[in-house]
Design a protein around this nucleic acid. Structure first.
Lengths: 228, 228
DNA sequence: CATTATATTGATGTATACAACAAATGTCAA
DNA sequence: TTGACATTTGTTGTATACATCAATATAATG
C-alpha cells in the first residue's frame, strides 16, 4: 500500500471485518454477489491477510460462504433463513426477559417507556433505540454464548430493515415495545416475556408478508432459495 | 516445509483447526496455558497462515483468547463458564426436544432405548452414544444458528468429561436418557422435554460438586476464575 | 539505592510471493 | 458440428519476510 491515509488504533483486520459486514448488512453489497479476495482488498484498502481474517469470521456468522477456488459468496436472504433467524429470537429473547429482566434497573425501563411513546422520532434514531432495547436483555444475561449467537442474528436482522423500513408496522412496534417495558417496571416478568414473544412473531409475519408481496413483482435479488 | 508426509484432501487450515481443538478439549494442552503462533506452527507442522486461521476460529468459540503481542491463551474452565455452558444447554435442548423431537423416527428412539439399557458398554462407546443422542435433537432443528452454538458448547463439555469420567453418575445418566427416549416414543413431548431439562441440571450439579471437591485439594489447573 | 529513560526482545499484524488446483477456453480431430 | 483434450486463466491455499508495538531488561542518573 502506498499511503495509509489514517493510522487508526484499530487493527486492520478488525476494521476490515466491521466495514465489510456493514457493507453486507446494509445491502451495499447485494445478497447473492460473488466476490474475490482481490476485490475486497481493493475495496477495503488492505492486503489479503486481514481480508481473509474478516471473511473467515463472516463465514462463521453465516453471512458469506467461501467456495474454494470459486469466490466468496454473500449469502442470499431466503425464506429458510428468515425462519432460522426468528426461531432463534423466539427462543432466546423471551427467555432473556423472563430470567434476566430483573437485572436491569427500573430507571432504564422508565427511560425506554418515555422514548417509545415519543412520536416523530427520526427513523434512524427510532431503529437505534429499538435495537438497543432488544440487545439489552441479551447483554443482561451476561452469557458469552447468548451474546455471540445474538450478535450473529442481530446483524442479519438489520438486512431486513432495508426491505421493510418505514413501513406501517413501525408505530405498532413502538407500542409493543412500550407494553413490554411497562410490564418490566411492574415486575410482571411472565407477561413481559409473552409480549416479547408476540412482538417478535409479529415482526416475523410483517417481514414474511412483505417479502411474499414484493416477490410477485420480480426485480428483487433478496429472495430465491440458496442454491448449491 | 520440507516433506509433506501425506497430502490429504483436507486443507491445512481445516486440519490445523481440528487437531488444535482436539488437543484443547482433550486437555492435552492444559487450560490456562499461553501459547505462541510459532509453537503451534511447530506442533501442527504448518505455517502461520493456516494456524492463524484456526486460532481465529477457536477464539470465536471462546476456547482461546488472543492477547495481542502477548500470546494465545487457552481459556480456563471457571465456575462462570460452567454456568454459561449449562445455561445454554438448559434453554436449547429441552426446547429442541419439545419442538423438533417429532421429526425423528420412532425406530431411532427405539434403538436408543436398547442402547441405554445395555450394561457394561465400554466407557468410550457409552459417551459416544450419549453425545450423539443429545446432538440429534439439535440437528433435527435444522437451524444453522442452533447448530453453531451447540457445536461451540458441545466441544467445551467434552473438557469436563476429562474431569468427571467414569464417575458414579454414569449409569444414572443412562437411565435418564432411557426415560427421555421412551417418552419420545410415546409422543409425550412435554414430559420428555422436562426430563431433558432435569437431566441437564443433574449433570451440571455433578460437575459443580466434583469441581468444588477437587478444588479443596489444590493441584488442579482447571478452576480459578478468568483473570485479566 | 531508587527511578527514569532507553534499548532489546519477542510477540502478533501485515504484505506479498509462490503453489496448487479447478474452471473456462480454445484447438484439433473425427 | 461436436467431442475430447490440452492450455490458459483466475482463484484460494500456503509460506515467509517485514512492520509494529508492548513488555521487559538494562543502564544511567538523581
Amino acid at each position: 500500500m502506498s499511503e495509509n491515509e489514517l493510522n487508526l488504533s484499530k487493527s486492520l483486520k478488525q476494521l476490515a471485518y466491521e466495514t465489510l459486514k456493514q457493507k453486507i448488512v446494509s445491502c451495499e453489497i447485494l445478497p447473492g454477489s460473488t466476490l474475490t479476495e482481490d476485490m475486497l482488498c481493493e475495496m477495503l484498502n488492505a492486503s489479503r491477510t486481514p481480508v481473509r481474517d474478516a471473511v473467515s469470521r463472516l463465514e462463521q456468522e453465516h453471512l458469506v460462504s467461501i467456495k474454494p477456488k470459486k469466490g466468496i459468496r454473500v449469502n442470499r436472504v431466503s425464506m429458510n433463513s428468515i425462519k432460522e433467524l426468528f426461531e432463534v429470537r423466539c427462543l432466546l429473547e423471551p427467555a432473556a426477559v423472563l430470567k434476566y429482566g430483573n437485572r436491569i434497573p427500573d430507571e432504564v425501563y422508565a427511560r425506554y417507556t418515555q422514548q417509545f411513546r415519543r412520536k416523530n422520532l427520526p427513523t434512524e434514531e427510532l431503529y437505534r433505540v429499538d435495537d438497543e432495547f432488544h440487545q439489552m436483555f441479551i447483554t443482561a444475561s451476561n452469557n458469552r454464548y447468548f451474546r455471540s449467537v445474538y450478535a450473529m442474528i442481530a446483524d442479519q436482522v438489520l438486512r431486513y430493515r432495508v426491505l421493510t423500513a418505514n413501513g406501517p408496522r413501525d408505530e405498532i412496534a413502538q407500542e409493543e415495545h412500550y407494553e413490554i417495558a411497562a410490564n418490566c417496571i411492574r415486575g410482571e416478568w411472565e407477561l413481559a416475556s409473552r409480549l416479547m414473544l408476540q412482538h417478535i412473531e409479529n415482526s416475523k409475519l410483517a417481514i414474511v408478508h412483505y417479502v411474499l408481496d414484493t416477490n410477485r413483482n420480480a426485480h428483487n435479488v433478496f429472495l430465491e432459495e440458496d442454491e448449491d
